[in-house]
């Protein structure tokens, strides 16, 4: 059987299809990711702004500066009993300054070197959680995020901070590497005590 000879318009249709695929492909590349469709995953994944300790990270709704990242096995917080762990607390001290409306940082997630993700939110568990006020625009808050995780998740792990606990999809989030490798993960923060504190800069 011989194939029908294509008409000229067939080429036009073909070109349109290819153009459509090309546009879809470039949109796919522009948007965060291509797989999955759940809240905050796949194409609805957040825009990750990588940063380093001490340098402000500009997010869509404000500026975040990670002041220090430390490991600890004991947590102290004013007005609460100290908490200890057999695993390790990742403690992130940061400042947050919203830009246009009041706002806060509500979620901290540590993605381990493996596939596991450890998440803490402003609704704390009594052990880990994010403690951060809601400053007005242009006013800086000091905040602390604590995530408890097993030591074998530490090598290569990074911490991600975001403003929305329900759906961070398509919004900016800040990510900072913990700087822990396989050699240091066994001793990182062992026996140390970290302090959880928060408030507006200038207020007690």
């Amino acid at each position: 059987m011989r194939l029908p000879r294509p008409r000229r318009s067939t080429f036009g249709v073909g070109a349109l299809v290819v153009a459509g695929l090309a546009v879809t492909q470039s949109l796919d590349a522009l948007l965060p990711s291509a797989t999955g469709a759940d809240f905050g995953t796949g194409a609805q994944r957040p825009f990750v702004r990588e940063g380093i300790v001490g340098t402000p990270i500009a997010l869509r709704t404000g500026d975040l500066t990670v002041k220090a990242v430390e490991g600890a096995t004991t947590l102290e917080e004013s007005g609460a009993y100290p908490v200890t762990t057999e695993a390790v607390f990742v403690v992130v001290h940061f400042t947050w300054k919203p830009q246009r409306e009041k706002g806060t940082i509500a979620v901290a997630e540590v993605a381990g070197g493996d596939d596991r993700v450890f998440r803490a939110t402003s609704i704390g568990s009594g052990r880990d959680g994010v403690t951060c006020p809601f400053p007005p625009p242009g006013v800086t808050a000091e905040c602390t995020a604590v995530v408890e995780l097993p030591r074998d998740a530490l090598p290569g792990a990074s911490v991600t901070l975001s403003t929305n606990a329900i759906d961070e999809g398509l919004d900016d989030v800040a990510r900072v590497d913990l700087g822990v490798d396989a050699a240091t993960s066994g001793s990182w923060g062992r026996g140390r005590t970290a302090t959880v504190s928060s408030g507006l800069v200038g207020l007690s």
Binding site: E101, K102, P133, P135, P136, P137, V139, L203
Partner: peptide, 14 residues
């Protein structure tokens, strides 16, 4: 002018 807004009830003072 940019629409930045500062609300009452901020609890941003002592």
């Amino acid at each position: 002018e940019d629409g930045t807004r500062w609300e009452t009830g901020s609890r941003a003072f002592e």
